[in-house]
C-alpha cells in the first residue's frame, strides 16, 4: 500500500514536469501537442477513495494550468474525466471491473485501447472547447481534439507498454 502511494506521488510530479517542460514544446505541425499527464488519472488504482481521487485530479489539472497560463481549462477537463472514470471502466472492461481486480498490465490490448481512447477523447474535447471558448470555431476545436487525441493515445499506449514489462 505504501508502495502504491510513493509510485503515485512520483508519477504525479514526473508527469507534470514532463508535460510542461518537454511535451508542450513539441507543437507538431504548429499546434498538435500530446497531453500525457492524464496518465495519472488513467492509471490511478481502481480501489480508491473517490473524494481524494477527484481532488487530486483537480490539483493535477490546476498545476498544469499554472505552468501553461491557461486559466482553469486543464483542471475542468481533469475533474470531469476523474468523475466519470468508473462508468468508462465498466463500459470498457465489463465484468472484471465489478470484482475490482483489474491490473492494467494484464488486461487485453483491445479493451485497454477502448478505455484509453474514450477517456482521452473526452478530456481533449472539454479542454479545447474551454480553451477556444467560441462556438463559431467548432471546426478548429474538433480538428485540435482529433489530432491531439491520436497523438496522446499513441504515446500513452507506448508508455504503458514500455513500463509494464518490468513488473513481469
Amino acid at each position: 500500500m505504501n508502495n502504491a502511494i510513493t509510485i503515485n506521488i512520483a508519477r504525479f510530479i514526473i508527469l507534470i514536469l514532463l508535460q510542461v517542460l518537454v511535451l508542450n514544446n513539441i507543437n507538431f505541425l504548429g499546434y498538435i501537442n500530446p497531453y500525457i499527464y492524464i496518465l495519472f488519472i488513467i492509471l490511478y488504482p481502481i480501489k480508491n477513495n473517490r473524494l481524494l481521487f477527484i481532488f487530486l485530479s483537480f490539483l493535477l489539472g490546476l498545476t498544469v494550468d499554472l505552468f501553461l497560463d491557461s486559466g482553469g481549462v486543464h483542471a475542468a477537463a481533469c475533474v470531469t474525466i476523474a468523475y466519470i472514470r468508473p462508468v468508462l471502466l465498466k463500459f470498457s472492461f465489463g465484468t472484471i471491473y465489478d470484482y475490482q481486480t483489474i491490473k492494467f498490465s494484464t488486461t487485453e490490448f483491445g479493451q485497454r485501447l477502448t478505455y484509453f481512447s474514450i477517456i482521452i477523447f473526452i478530456h481533449h474535447l472539454i479542454l479545447f472547447s474551454l480553451e477556444i471558448f467560441n462556438s463559431s470555431r467548432i471546426i478548429l476545436i474538433l480538428k485540435k481534439t482529433l489530432f491531439s487525441s491520436i497523438f496522446t493515445i499513441i504515446l500513452c499506449l507506448l508508455i504503458t507498454i514500455l513500463f509494464s514489462r518490468k513488473n513481469k
Partner: peptide, 20 residues
C-alpha cells in the same frame, strides 16, 4: 462525490472564464 465534483468543476470554470 457529486457535490465535490460540482464544486471543483465550477471553481475551474470560474478560473477559465476569468482567463478569457
Amino acid at each position: 462525490t457529486f457535490l465535490l465534483f460540482l464544486l471543483l468543476l465550477s471553481a475551474s470554470l470560474f478560473l477559465t472564464i476569468q482567463s478569457h
